[in-house]
Design a protein around this nucleic acid. Structure first.
Length: 801
DNA sequence: ACTGGTTTCATTTTT
DNA sequence: TGAAACCAGT
């Protein structure tokens, strides 16, 4: 692909794509194909710039769809990018490499599972799976769980991985670390044995694969001419290193030709150092400065024109953030005028604050503002309780963000565990999760014996069941038989049928049908079936979570035409819809908010508000010790991060911003006295309008009045909350029948129900035929080898009689 | 296996 | 304060 002088590209200037972009946005969109850093302020049209650039690159022929990689952090951001792109481009964008870091790593590892030393159907552990896996390791090592708290050990391991360290690489200074590293090593073995990977492993494994396989690395370096990274300030060390594998900086050893010129890709990093609020989970703002230096970025493009907020709000944000010392430097501006001043409320107590909030919300709503355009932000989740209670008692619909997501619900996880065991019975995490749920008389003692037996032989729990047949083994045997027979029973079934069958034979349905409050759980299990159905429809089976444009997979990998499927080069085997769905479930935990459609006030932490915007925003609990949080106040960096957090909070507001704080607050069961947040002193006085007299003392009549009104304060007991059944966000309108995967009875002499022969798997029975042409795929039961999906363009299947 | 009482802990979180 | 985890007793 030739890169011609940009900006002057024929027709580019007149392209309707570039209309209405401001000069900075235009510069970013049409930047030359070389490393670039874009400092994108809040509300500066960052996503628009990213998507327009991709569209422009494609439209001007500078790159083909397969040559673009765009990385985000959240599924939401990735989805948004895809949606916007699909309206700008005349072709299906699904096949492009646009996704989250983890999603793309997954694609990559599925395509190269052999090189990655993983089973093709490897499963992904979510956070809670990881913790319980770690817990098992600690137990097996007979270590003190007080000293080695599973969750913390999990963080340690993730931390190591995010620094690119394997157990052997960790520097051991003390006994504690030494033990931790041992746990890490054993945990690794266990995961490998069970064929599972955690989130950090997805990243590290694909990084190592690229690092250790020059041919693969070069292939991808040649392929991806344009790499775009969103929210670059949130990248950790490993993610940055991973990006470098695809686009090595000039003059490094990783250079494919050793010329010292780099490999000619254009790596475009978009970020905002002022919105870096995830240092506590390993994000390195420093990556931005490193990037600028290592890639010899010629010019940093700053997007400072804000299209979201009125002047007072931006003034406040600018003034506040200017107090931070370590900044790349950027000042937001707007053409929108000053707007309303920022209202500030001092309340005598947290109850009073909530009550004031209610009045304000009602007034705004009466004034014509949708409730969903009103957000109440707080620093920590615990603060939501009082506010929820007040809203509930006033009958104002509200929605709390955070909390359990759909695929994290216990009943859903149980169902998924059974499904995983069908695919991989050696998944001990899933085995332990459901071996005695619903209860089948398998107690702790039995399981301990089983685990001992498994440890002694280095086999999985499932494989060790026979070994302890004597002691309590009968029930265990019944369980493995249940799994095996369900597996046989579901051969050849559709995903929907498999799940229905599993729910039934596992006893889950019966259990919840008799459980007194199982109704909601049954609904969620029903929703799981719907989700699976929607998944199959939308993805068209076979692609899915993998979504690799098959003609561009990797050197030496022959692939079928199914968009997204990644068949094995030798056998043509593709992921089954079940594996694809399980992958989807771990990679995208689903929505965590109930009643998405309703017009309700939005309650969330400042962290989860990042990236969102509302007409009216309330930032509550602005007290020293809470916001900024006391745990962050000890060091300079911590305080600066709190300030950035406040900056993020302020810049969420479009029209109206209100700040509030309390003199007293119920915290950990005790009434605590606070002074107002130092952030008030860092905001421009002209932009603020104090609703209460400044510096009011404690216990004033004003205070007592509210206090009395709220002392009887009704708790949350018996309240139903804002809806119970999570509606998964991925369920979209039903797909017309014409778009459903084509099912046929016959293909090139193959007939459903007849025998077939495969060079590797031998004889089998053809169960299903789907799709046509290069897309055609078949499901075959090979008996001993199990049931497999095959891409017919790769797999050599011959009919037999 | 289930229950009810006791203890412990409390910042932010996506994948 | 309140939840979640843990433990002891039936």
């Amino acid at each position: 692909m030739t890169s011609f002088p940009v900006g002057q590209a024929a027709g580019a200037a007149s392209s309707p794509l570039l209309k209405n972009l401001n000069p900075e946005q235009l510069a970013a969109v049409t930047a030359a194909p070389e490393p670039a850093l874009i400092l994108a302020g809040a509300g500066s049209g960052k996503t628009r710039v990213l998507t327009t650039r991709i569209a422009w690159l494609l439209q001007t022929g500078q790159v083909s769809p397969g040559g673009v990689m765009a990385v985000t952090f959240t599924n939401k951001a990735a989805k948004e990018m895809l949606t916007r792109l699909s309206t700008m481009l005349p072709f299906n964008v699904r096949g492009m490499w646009i996704g989250t870091f983890h999603g793309l790593c997954n694609r990559f590892l599925r395509a190269h599972w052999k090189l990655a030393h993983l089973p093709q159907a490897f499963q992904i552990l979510d956070a809670s799976d990881t913790t319980s896996a770690v817990k098992r390791v600690i137990k097996a090592m007979k270590l003190d769980e007080e000293r080695f708290v599973p969750k913390q050990v999990g963080w340690f391991i993730a931390g190591c991985k995010e620094d690119g360290l394997r157990p052997g690489d960790v520097e051991v200074r003390d006994d504690q670390t030494k033990k931790l590293v041992e746990i890490y090593a054993n945990y690794e073995d266990q995961c490998q044995r069970e064929g599972v990977v955690d989130f950090a492993e997805l990243m590290l494994r694909s990084y190592e694969l690229l690092r250790d396989n020059p041919a693969v690395r070069e292939h991808y370096q040649n392929r991806f001419r344009h790499i775009l990274v969103d929210e670059f300030q949130d990248t950790n060390k490993l993610q940055y290193a991973w990006l470098k594998m695809f686009a090595p900086p000039p003059g490094r050893a990783a250079d494919s030709d050793g010329s010292g010129r780099g490999t000619g890709q254009s790596l475009l990093a978009v970020g905002d150092d002022d919105q870096s609020i995830y240092a506590f989970r390993g994000a390195r703002v420093g990556n931005m400065i490193d990037f600028e230096r290592e890639y010899r970025v010629k010019k940093v493009i700053k997007l400072e024109q804000n299209y979201r907020s009125f002047g007072h709000i931006l003034d406040a944000a600018n003034e506040l953030i200017s107090r931070n010392s370590q900044r790349l430097g950027k000042t937001l501006r707007t053409d929108a005028g000053q707007g309303d001043p920022i209202r500030v409320q001092e309340a005598p107590s947290d109850f009073a604050e909530a009550q004031w909030l209610i009045e304000e919300v009602q007034q705004l709503h009466r004034g014509g503002l949708d409730r969903k355009e009103i957000a109440v932000l707080y620093r920590s989740n615990a603060q939501s309780r009082v506010i929820e209670s007040a809203l509930f008692n006033s009958g104002i619909p509200y929605r709390v963000y955070g909390g359990l997501r759909f695929f994290e619900r216990a009943e859903v996880k149980h169902a998924l565990a059974y499904l995983r065991l069908l695919e991989n019975p050696n998944d001990d995490t899933s085995f332990l999760r459901v071996v005695n749920f619903p209860t089948r008389g398998i107690g702790a003692k039995t399981l301990e014996n089983l685990q001992d037996a498994a440890k002694a032989t280095g086999r999985s729990l499932y494989q060790s069941v026979g070994a302890i047949a004597g002691k309590g083994g009968a029930n265990l045997l019944a369980f493995t038989n249940l799994i095996d027979s369900t597996r046989n029973l579901t051969q050849g079934m559709t995903l929907r049928e498999i799940i229905e069958q599993v729910l039934e034979t596992s006893g889950l349905l019966d259990f919840y049908r008799t459980d007194k409050d199982g109704a909601e759980r049954l609904e969620n299990l029903d929703e799981l079936i719907n989700a699976a159905e929607a998944f199959v429809m939308q993805e068209g089976f076979g692609k899915n979570a993998v979504g690799l444009p098959v003609d561009e997979v990797a050197p030496g990998l022959q692939t079928a035409g199914t968009p997204g499927a990644v068949p094995d080069a030798e056998t043509g085997e593709i992921m089954s819809p079940l594996v694809a769905f399980l992958t989807h479930a771990s990679l995208e935990a689903g929505d965590n908010q109930a009643q998405a459609g309703q017009d309700a006030v939005q309650l969330m932490t400042v962290h989860s508000a990042k990236g969102l915007e509302f007409d009216a925003v309330f930032i509550t609990g602005l007290e020293e010790g809470l916001f900024p949080h006391e745990n962050a106040m000890s060091d300079h960096d911590g305080l600066e991060e709190e300030r950035r957090l406040m900056y993020v909070a302020i810049t969420r507001a479009r029209k109206k911003l209100s700040l509030s704080f309390c003199q007293t607050r119920m915290l950990h069961g005790q009434t605590r006295y606070h002074i107002k947040s130092r952030f008030f002193d860092e905001l421009p006085e002209e932009a603020l309008k104090w609703l209460t007299p400044r510096n009011q003392g404690f216990g004033s009549g004003f205070a007592r009045e509210y206090q009395n009104a709220w002392d009887r304060g009704s708790g949350l007991k018996g309240m139903v909350g804002a809806g119970n059944v999570a509606k998964p966000a991925w369920v979209e309108p039903p797909v017309p029948a014409s778009m459903k995967p084509k099912v046929s009875e016959e293909h090139g002499g193959l007939r459903v129900g007849k025998g077939v022969f495969h060079t590797k798997f031998g004889e089998g029975v053809l169960l299903t035929l789907e799709g046509a042409g290069a897309d055609a795929r078949a499901q075959v039961n090979f008996g001993r080898h199990g049931t497999k999906w095959l891409a017919l363009s790769v797999a050599k299947l011959t009919p037999i009689d």
